[in-house]
Design a protein around this nucleic acid. Sequence first.
DNA 1: GCCAACGTTGGC
DNA 2: GCCAACGTTGGC
Length: 137
Amino acid sequence: MRYWLFKSEASTWSWDQQVARGEEGEQWDGVRNYQARNNMRAMKLGDQGFFYHSQDEKAVVGIVEVCAEAHPDSTTDDPRWECVDIKAVRPMPNPVTLAMCKSDARLTDMVLVNNTRLSVQPVTEAEWKIVCDLGGL
DNA sequence: GCCAACGTTGGC
DNA sequence: GCCAACGTTGGC
């Protein structure tokens, strides 16, 4: 089991929209970045991920699960781009903000803190537990 | 709204 | 294969 973080602007695709998709989930399309795509290719069914709202909220607002492994991105004909499907698992009782992550000495190596522009990121097990703890899970 | 960081593109 | 130019993202 591995852990990930999915970043989205709430105005483009929000946690509420993700929740509304239910068990069916939704493909995480539109990624046009090799690093992010490679991360998605590495995902396995059942892997867990954080759902992060960038721009306005800048916080981890929920937990998602990979419900389909990498497949072609239906929003483009370009065969280079693939995506996974994810479904909402549960909301964070208390959203974990970027500021909280930055100020926590245990999270200084977190990709979210160091590479703000990567939209699909790996999260270590230790980081996962810390963020879940901060979020009230 | 600005700007820094970073990825991608294209000319050479 | 290098590097300058450009576009995009996202924090502030």
